[in-house]
Write a protein that binds this DNA or RNA. Sequence first.
DNA 1: GTGGTCTAGACCACA
DNA 2: GTGGTCTAGACCACA
Lengths: 120, 120, 120, 120
Amino acid sequence: MNFDSGLPIYMQIVEIIKTRIVTGILKSGEKLPSVRDMATELKVNPNTIQRSYGELERENIVFTQRGMGTFVTDEESTLKGLKATMAREKIISFMEDMERLGYGRDELPGIIEKMIVEGK
Amino acid sequence: MNFDSGLPIYMQIVEIIKTRIVTGILKSGEKLPSVRDMATELKVNPNTIQRSYGELERENIVFTQRGMGTFVTDEESTLKGLKATMAREKIISFMEDMERLGYGRDELPGIIEKMIVEGK
Amino acid sequence: MNFDSGLPIYMQIVEIIKTRIVTGILKSGEKLPSVRDMATELKVNPNTIQRSYGELERENIVFTQRGMGTFVTDEESTLKGLKATMAREKIISFMEDMERLGYGRDELPGIIEKMIVEGK
Amino acid sequence: MNFDSGLPIYMQIVEIIKTRIVTGILKSGEKLPSVRDMATELKVNPNTIQRSYGELERENIVFTQRGMGTFVTDEESTLKGLKATMAREKIISFMEDMERLGYGRDELPGIIEKMIVEGK
DNA sequence: GTGGTCTAGACCACA
DNA sequence: GTGGTCTAGACCACA
């Protein structure tokens, strides 16, 4: 059990798949699991996966070949863009979190540098 | 519905309460909701909240007065420590996430600085 | 039937296990009975034993290996510390008992010495 | 709930009353609670209290006046003897406990003296 | 088989 | 009303 993130399930799954692509678990041009398999793995209704795949296709991150399945795009520029966008989102939410903890944006680069040094 | 974070519910609740304290929603010395009220609010069993409160008490973040309730500590040093620890954790998980996206730790301060400038 | 000691059951069990460790019935590194077996032996609910084991783990007196069981620590310094703490507590409660019987603390060493001589 | 001490209930009650006498809660010559009241206070059957009072009478620690009740003896020598016996028992069980923890009898006076000094 | 978590529901002491 | 403890019983992950 987990508390509600607010995000609809199919979008949570979109995020999961994007992360898998961007971290290399799913590679450029590779076939995604079938809608049925993915539904079984994530324990959701196949319709939900269908919707997630649809959203990913709309964003040009995957493409479907009739009768063959769904594949990660092989356009490197799209994948680069995806990576950049996800990084951007991570950074923004990180900055917001830190702001709520009382750390101003200007302090962050310094704090991180300090932690890198200490962490060594 | 939300995908399993792996963290047990009572620890998720601990995190929720820590965040409320550190962001000022719950103030130093203030009374927490009663075990029963919190259980109703979060829709879990009172025993689960009991366990969360117990964990927070072990960490000296709250204290309980028999028959009166559970209160946020008023030791400022503890609260400062909590803030620092939560910030540290946020930074570490941020650095790990970014690393998985292919950004080296040394790049991060620069990237953030760039984003701050752009964001203005 | 026995009159209430005031100590909760799970803490009474903690004391029982500590005594077993310190007197050598349970040895360093040895496996404790499973939660279920201990519950059967002591005729309490498994949850209560779970809580006792949890408390012992927090005190670093035992550690658990997932799926394997709960074991007495093999850190000799911890075991020595446990022995010393239990002795200290025994001495303190002995001194308090004797004080209530009208014997001052300063008299105690003398009284004990006398009894040792007589007892021979 | 408390784990079995092995001692029969009526003897546990004898010990409770002896402690009350020796610590001055019940004074020399004073009336003990009626069998019924004592039974209510300790939540046992009046017959059990009857048996405890009988045992105390056999030991000359209390005496019964028909129609009046049960009273603590006013023979000071008996009370002194009781105190000495209880102290003796406390010391013996203390020495046994410490022995089981690995402390020899000869060490005890020294250990206690050390703790008295530290405790100041 | 092992410990870990959770719910449902009860009863207790303290205020 | 408040937290503290306990039982009964379920389901889970890890080995």
